[in-house]
Nucleic acid binder design. Structure first.
Lengths: 190, 190
DNA sequence: ACAATATGCGGACCCCAGTCCGCTTGTCTA
DNA sequence: TAGACAAGCGGACTGGGGTCCGCATATTGT
């Protein structure tokens, strides 16, 4: 008989590994705040952190993973608010209200971190869909569209509108945040 | 007084330039049919065409331009059908019908050329929106949504759903073309 | 025919993401 | 405390997109 743990938690990270993860994140953040996304090359991050490039990749898999990690804290707040926060975002609200609250909150988040989001979504082709957080939003939107014809497809529709590249394009094209917001809300209403 | 032509047509392409454009396109097509998108590196294309790499870039601006040029003929057919073809796609149809006909036709097109479309849309960040053809579809969809609250935004919504990367992700996730089709049609109905 | 000039050409070069692999070091067990 | 071994480490290396610039040639006016 095999010896399968029912839930095998991933083996704890070694101490040096954890230290390096922190070093890399701090270095990346420093580079980003001083030079913008332009400055966020993997070589530069590794050098600034004083570690080898391989270490960066071992800890964060690829560049989108690294950038996503930079955004993680902020994103966690939003996720938490949705799972267990107060209405209208949290689980006590009505579905339509929760959908509206979600897109508003998410657009605020996009507004605050547009360039990092673009970087994390376009680092590799299809990177966006691989991000764990994408699954999270998809699942929750699917639930909030439970009444629709194909709830999962509706979830994808909304996420497609919240794509950072698209929004950056609209912004560059002169669209106001208000107009974008109104459009997305429309999609989610009813 | 300046000597301004009212509409300055772009100066005609030099003979050698035109020849090279054709050589490059043929070479690219050959590589693609024999080795798939994998084989479409700009170095390989240049070598196969017997021209320098600079020439490829001069003629097609960047890789997404080159790939878009490969798709151009097929895309032109669709465009033509929309501008001057018979109903339901052509200008004589009712708007809702035309929208439905458009998304059906476009999805057929995507189905036939998914990998090339992904390549052309993801070659550079934001490449998709820069493609001339994107403007074309956006303009026409905007007209077909003339009754909506923000027609242009609706156009963007539909195009976001027709994004090749998204569709490839759905396909890889096990979605049938039927299901995708139904979802997009729903978005366009009414 | 012949300059004069703009357009085009080639390919060496740069940058950056991501891989590979021989060496090091933390951790676990006895 | 020591030995065994997985995990981690660094940085040279690869592959591909895109740029640059000195040289070549098609085109146009005389």
């Amino acid at each position: 008989m095999e010896d399968l743990p029912l839930l095998d938690s991933p083996p704890r990270e070694r101490a040096d590994a954890a230290r390096n993860r922190a070093l890399v994140l701090q270095a990346a953040w420093r580079l980003y705040t001083s030079g913008g996304v332009e400055a966020l090359t993997t070589d530069a991050v590794a050098q600034e952190a004083g570690v080898g490039k391989g270490t960066v990749y071992r800890r964060f898999r690829d560049k989108s993973g690294l950038v996503a990690a930079l955004l993680d804290d902020r994103e966690k707040e939003l996720q938490l608010a949705m799972i267990s926060g107060p209405a209208p975002l949290g689980p006590d609200g009505a579905r339509t209200e929760r959908r509206l609250a979600f897109v508003r909150a998410y657009l605020d988040y996009v507004e605050a971190h547009l360039d990092l989001l673009v970087a994390s979504e376009t680092a590799a082709p299809g990177a966006r869909y691989r991000l764990g957080v994408y699954q999270f939003w998809k699942t929750h939107l699917t639930l909030l569209f439970a009444d629709a014809y194909d709830p999962e497809f509706r979830a994808y529709t909304v996420l497609a509108l919240l794509d950072a590249s698209l929004i950056r394009h609209l912004r560059a094209d002169g669209w106001s945040w208000e107009r974008i917001r109104a459009g997305v809300e429309q999609e989610v209403r009813w």
